[in-house]
Amino acid sequence: MVLALERVTRLYDERRALDEVSFTVRPGRMTGFVGANGAGKTTAMRIVMGVLAPTSGEVLLDGRPLTRELRRTFGYMPEERGLYPRMRVLDQLVHLGRVHGMSRAAATRRATALLDQLGLDDRSHDLLQTLSLGNQQRVQVAAALLHEPVLLVLDEPFSGLDPLAIDAMGELLRSRAAAGVPVLFSSHQLELVEQLCDDVVIIDDGRVVTAGPADEVRSRRGGRRYRVRVQGPRPAAELVPGVAGATVVEATDDTVVVELADPADDQALLAAAQAHGVLREFAVVRPTLAEIFREVVR
């Protein structure tokens, strides 16, 4: 089951919130959706869920246009969280389950099991508004997972969670992905995306800047950087001028990060390093997503 956005454009009055956005979300993989505030992440996710209509372009599931019947089988966690504040936790989940077409009995069974799993079984008869924000967030997760969705769309699922809860949430999403469910989630926490994602989509000002498997994106964006650690009589940075096409990116006493221009030879760098002193490390450096992101958004 593959979800694909194809040249999706959305105008608000004259402003282009999304400009021909295309990317895919593949089964069994976690796709991280990254972008600055206002870049269009939430708009894109709302269009996937049918909450907003695209001005042009379309969203396809296995090549077929999405219908509401299909979308009802998705799990959704909106950015602006929302549940009924004055409804009991269990009642609320059962209601949402029934809205998604489950029977009352099935919804009750599933909601009880999920609350148990999320450690909220003793709060199931409390009003939602009496729960802490973190616990409300867990109920929100339960609402998204209740009807055994075939695809997950989660807008900022990690925001407002403490480190332990972040781990638990990551675990949960991983297990869904492992079960073959395509997972699309947005986040500001780039380290987290880096750690969790198989695929990544970076969006800036309504346009997709880069998209694909996270490794590929990093090496494609990375250029040719090497980290060299040498123990010698002089600072490591002094070996660089002797190599054609090499420039220093950053340096400490015994370590230097070197960027090679396209025609430059990495073997020449290696030879220069060995000549400089005792070579302890010679490694290809790939930029983190955070670095790529900063570069792209700048």
């Binding site: 869920m49 049918g50 509401r68 009802r72 959704y76 909106p78 929302g82 504040p85 949402l96 998604h100």
Partner: peptide, 17 residues
């Protein structure tokens, strides 16, 4: 307005016309 204010509406609209 309660559904609007608490944003439950997004979940509902995603599932039902």
């Amino acid at each position: 307005v309660e559904e609007k204010q608490s944003r439950v509406i997004e979940l509902l609209v995603a599932a039902l016309p």
